[in-house]
Amino acid sequence: MDIGGTFTDVVAYDEASGAYAAGKASTTPADLTEGVFAALAQVVDDPAAIAFTVHGTTQGLNAFLQRRGEKVLLLATRGAGDVYHIARGNRTRLYDVHYRKPTPLVPRGDIVEIGGRLNWAGEELEPLDEGAIRDAARRYREEGFGAVAVAFLFGYLNPAHELRAAEILVEELGPVAVSLSHRVAREWREYERTSSTVVDAYTAPVVRRYLERLETELRGRGLAVPLHVMQSSGGIVTAQSARDLSLQTLLSGP
């Protein structure tokens, strides 16, 4: 199943006969599941007969490109709050004097620096400032944020501070969308890890809401097997895994 901007396409393969069937319906932006079921009805009489299903989605990519993701609060290590905005010095057009960096998804004012430090080996030099995390949680609630990205220095070596930050956020806010850098992109370059975590936080709530609704509708119509989602890499994961790490589905549709 693949949802495009104009059409929704479904391709079915009958293992018994070896025959293929294709269905096409207009995409329904107000409720994408309507287009899915309209196309599905053209190739399958009863969803309960489906033995395996894979879905390609552009929900995350559309939210990213159209800048309609969630408002993100970024928690960074004290003294490293500018990493995300400084980014890299490389430019796609080296001699273009009019070049401007793309506008970051998180403005500098929405980056909160948190005390607590690990060294290059992942050993704790300074304990996490839990009070600062709780202050950030209050700001999240008061200013209408929709997700939190947590990217601490050397978090890829030792995730203890990031994990504790997530625990505190849940204690203070209840169920909340939290993206942790060591889960999203466990690599040593701070900007790349932070940037990836921000994109995950920005798109994750959109992807999660969509997949939860699609799964609910499919089960309600008799689908008895898990829904799988295409990853950017071309591989597949369960819808649950896609909800947990939505960044991996950014190029799912294309």
Rank of each mutant, 00 (worst) to 15 (best):
V170I: 11
E126Y: 11
A165Q: 06
V83E: 02
G122T: 09
E192P: 03
H85A: 07
R189S: 01
D9S: 04
A136S: 08
A38W: 05
V150C: 05
R88L: 08
R68N: 15
T194C: 04
F152N: 06
E192V: 08
G155R: 03
T28Q: 01
T92P: 05
V148I: 15
G69H: 01
A147W: 00
F7H: 07
Q231R: 14
A121I: 11
L223R: 00
I111T: 14
V10K: 12
A121F: 12
G116F: 10
D135M: 08
L125P: 06
G253Y: 08
L250M: 08
I168K: 02
A177C: 14
M1I: 14
H55Y: 12
T58S: 13
D14Y: 04
V199A: 07
T249D: 09
S196I: 05
E126K: 13
Y99E: 15
V36F: 12
R183E: 15
V229D: 06
Q240D: 14
R138D: 13
T57M: 12
H161F: 13
G79M: 07
S181P: 09
L61M: 12
L214C: 09
T28A: 10
Q240S: 14
M230R: 07
H228D: 01
A25G: 07
P29Q: 05
G79C: 03
L214R: 00
Q231I: 07
V184W: 12
L94D: 02
E142S: 12
G116A: 10
F154E: 12
I168F: 03
A80D: 12
P159E: 10
A204P: 00
V207N: 10
E212S: 11
E167C: 01
T92C: 10
S246Y: 10
D200N: 15
R164N: 07
R91G: 02
A132T: 08
S195Y: 09
E215Q: 10
R186E: 11
F154Y: 15
A136M: 01
Y156F: 15
A30H: 11
R78A: 14
E171F: 03
T103E: 15
R209Y: 10
V10N: 09
H182C: 13
A147E: 08
S195R: 13
I236L: 13
T8S: 07
A38S: 07
T58E: 03
E167S: 03
A76Y: 00
V178F: 00
R208V: 15
I114V: 15
F7C: 06
N158C: 11
V225T: 05
V229M: 05
H98M: 09
L118S: 01
E187M: 13
A121N: 15
L118F: 13
E130Y: 01
N62W: 10
A49Y: 03
F7R: 03
G23E: 07
Q42M: 12
S26C: 02
G174R: 04
V83Y: 01
L125S: 04
I50V: 13
A22I: 14
G5D: 00
G253V: 08
K101W: 06
T238P: 01
P29M: 11
G4I: 02
V112K: 02
I86W: 00
R93Y: 11
V178T: 06
V198P: 05
L125T: 13
A63I: 12
L247C: 05
Y95W: 10
V206E: 04
H85T: 13
V184D: 08
